[in-house]
Design a binder for these strands. Structure first.
Length: 435
DNA sequence: TCTGGGGTCCTAGGACCC
DNA sequence: TCTGGGGTCCTAGGACCC
């Protein structure tokens, strides 16, 4: 017998984060923008009701925004990340086995809760989160992750459900499946949706009845898993502690087009620095660093160029300084001054656990020194805020940097936005940590 | 003027080896 | 000169997710 799985999903997460800290926004349509304030990446219910679509460029809906008094925010990931943590911590107090699936969603393994009133338990979770953080969430419960997703989705749509829909051992499962369009199933996207509809499979219910070998042939084993899950057989396990990343990417569009090597190389240096911090956080080292850049593909009238280069490192490393060196080597190979660039990025691959890297075995004096420098910088940046210390190659003015003209304050972490940290403070901190 | 960023998995096909 | 099967590893591309 399979046990119940709950999916807790924050409602309109980014928009709700903005609203939690600004009560004037109750009832007001809210949209949150992508980096560079380019397009819509999140909407409150009111904004959805106005017909504002996901991914719509801001400039196309300016009229609507004025007319309906829509509140517009640049994305503020510091705030959203912190709110997410608060919600997840509460979930962990309700259930020991939590998979944090994304910034605004978590699966709970409710093994052992079978005898409880699951709907009641779901309600308790929902109410506690609302009360302690202000965040509205929906709870869906079922036998598999895929079914829990469906329960959650229908729970959001249904007034009657009141934010909790329990399909575990429910005679309404088929009804729920019939009410779910194929492309709304977790694991079925646009392409597969089209394919399935072409073959007369229009609902989750119809997909659950599909022919196994046909599905496997057309949708690989992934599709097969989805079908089994729709039938109530769990195929996708919960992951309680995230495995280390196999690839780490850092990339951004620039705030303006630029053909300056100085701009692009500063940007790349910034991305390398971010990626290296992520790499060290998961205690890995990388063997391959890729650098890529591109012009703006939406500007048809301008000459287009995109290119990337993979640089293999002599030994796997996690050192920012070393990665910066190779990134520069890569960049000069692909940078051409005759183009106006729109975006660049770096990717770290060939990732292995740090302690298995060659590095540990053939350590030279030099590397040890480098490691010490890195550790000190990480620790200072952790304590005093992200960019208290950084390599000069990242630039000071950063004229290519992103536009974020409508960002809300960092309500939850303002202490990190200290003005300037004096050398004295850092010195004192280092003395203390020595011990 | 103005269109995000960061991940995963699977498969087919090529290179290479015995 | 030509013929055969089988295995591994890697990469690119396509699908998906939030």
């Amino acid at each position: 017998m399979s046990h119940p799985i709950a999916l807790i999903d924050c409602n309109n997460f980014y928009a709700s984060c903005e609203r939690v800290f600004n009560p004037k926004l109750v009832g007001v349509p809210i949209v949150v923008l992508s980096n560079n304030d380019g397009m819509i990446i999140a909407r409150s219910q009111e904004a959805k009701d106005l017909g504002i679509a996901m991914g719509e460029p801001l400039f196309k809906i300016q009229d609507k925004i004025k007319k309906h008094g829509v509140a517009v925010f640049s994305s503020n990931y510091t705030l959203y990340g912190d709110m997410s943590q608060r919600v997840m911590t509460i979930l962990e107090s309700f259930c020991p086995d939590v998979e944090i699936y994304s910034i605004d969603e978590a699966f709970l393994n409710l093994h052992g809760f079978e005898r409880e009133d699951l709907t009641e338990y779901g309600r308790k979770i929902k109410n506690t989160i609302k009360k302690w953080t202000g965040m509205p969430v929906t709870v869906g419960i079922a036998e598999t992750k895929t079914l829990a997703k469906i329960a959650n989705r229908l729970g959001k749509k249904s007034q009657k459900a009141g934010g909790v829909l329990n399909l575990y051992n429910s005679r309404f499962r088929n009804t729920a499946l019939k009410r779910t369009d194929v492309e709304d199933i977790w694991g079925v996207g646009r392409q597969y949706g089209k394919l399935l509809r072409k073959h007369g499979i229009n609902s989750a219910y119809e997909l659950s009845l599909a022919n196994d070998s046909w599905i496997k042939k057309r949708m690989t084993v992934m599709g097969m898993r989805t079908v089994y899950e729709l039938r109530g057989t769990p195929c996708i396990k919960l992951e309680y502690s995230p495995p280390p990343k196999k690839a780490i990417v850092s990339s951004r569009s620039f705030g303006k087009l630029t053909n300056s090597y100085e701009d692009v190389s500063q940007a790349v240096a910034n991305y390398v620095t971010r990626a290296a911090v992520k790499l060290r956080k998961q205690r890995s080292a990388a063997r391959i660093l890729s650098v890529f850049l591109r012009t703006n593909p939406f500007k048809n009238e301008m000459p287009q160029y995109h290119n990337g280069v993979m640089v293999e490192l002599p030994v796997p490393t996690d050192s920012t300084a070393e990665l910066l060196e190779y990134a520069t080597k890569g960049l000069v190979q692909i940078f051409k001054p005759e183009y106006k660039y729109h975006k660049a990025g770096v990717m770290l691959t060939g990732i292995i656990p740090y302690d298995r890297s060659q590095y540990a075995m053939f350590d030279s004096e030099n590397r040890n020194r480098m490691k010490e420098v890195t550790e000190v910088m990480d620790s200072i940046n952790e304590r005093f805020g992200k960019e208290t210390m950084f390599y000069a190659s990242l630039g000071i003015k950063r004229e290519w940097g992103m536009r974020r003209e409508m960002k809300s304050p960092n309500y939850t972490t303002n202490w990190k936005e200290l003005p300037i940290v004096s050398a004295k403070e850092i010195w004192k901190y280092m003395q203390e940590t020595e011990k």
